[in-house]
């Protein structure tokens, strides 16, 4: 999937730079919105059909909810810290970080603030998903198993799940899925709250 993303965005950037006339670019807006609507509905289907999640949650107990909360708090506070280093406002870096790895939603929601911010959100959240796969073995080995779900944020429940399970064990899958689901549901609200209504 990571390869597909990198290939698609590269083809898109080159096409946008060299071939696609500016008068066509506004069609992209519809493609992005339409694509996003399809993805959101399918993500919902996937969350809704997993009955066993709710049973597993009861087995593991309330502590399973503490981890997504910790992921959100850690992402936003450190996102704010990164604003001190970069030529961006803290609101902008926290807004980008609040994408929590959801690289299709975050740039869409930030597009109306600026094209630059939207592009930053896209890249940062793609990096987060790639980091969630590449760094997982290191974190499992040096820090701990549950910490692995923190790397990828929202994609712990889907694209990064195989990497997480193979670096840890099956037990961690339930933490990964629950955390991914909760983080995913929070992302649209978080971005909106950070950027202001």
């Amino acid at each position: 999937m990571s390869k597909t993303i990198i290939l698609s965005v590269s083809v898109g950037i080159l096409a946008g730079y060299f071939f696609v006339p500016d008068s066509w670019v506004f069609f992209c807006e519809y493609l992005i919105k339409g694509g996003l609507c399809v993805i959101l509905f399918l993500v919902g289907l996937d969350i809704g059909r997993q009955e066993s999640i709710w049973k597993e949650i009861r087995k593991v107990g309330f502590r399973v909810f503490l981890f997504p909360l910790a992921i959100i708090v850690g992402t936003l506070t450190f996102g704010a810290l990164s604003g001190l280093l970069l030529p961006m406002t803290i609101q902008e870096t926290v807004g980008v970080a609040a994408g929590l790895g959801w690289y299709s939603l975050a740039p869409m929601m930030l597009a109306e603030y600026s094209a630059t911010l939207s592009a930053t959100a896209f890249l940062a959240n793609v990096f987060r998903e790639i980091g969630g796969i590449v760094l997982v073995a290191l974190v499992a080995d040096k820090v701990g198993f549950i910490e692995c779900i923190a790397l990828s944020g929202s994609s712990a429940m889907d694209t990064c799940l195989p990497a997480i399970v193979s670096a840890t064990n099956d037990r961690i899958a339930i933490y990964a899925i629950v955390s991914g689901v909760i983080v995913t549901i929070f992302i649209p609200f978080l971005i909106q709250i950070v950027m202001g209504f």
Binding site: T4, I5, S8, V9, S10, V11, G12, I13, L14, A15, G16, V20, V25, C28, E29, L31, I32, G35, L36, I39, Y103, S104, P107, A115, S118, F122
Partner: peptide, 8 residues
């Protein structure tokens, strides 16, 4: 979506 984003 990602290609369209790239074009933009």
């Amino acid at each position: 979506l990602i290609t369209a984003l790239g074009i933009q």
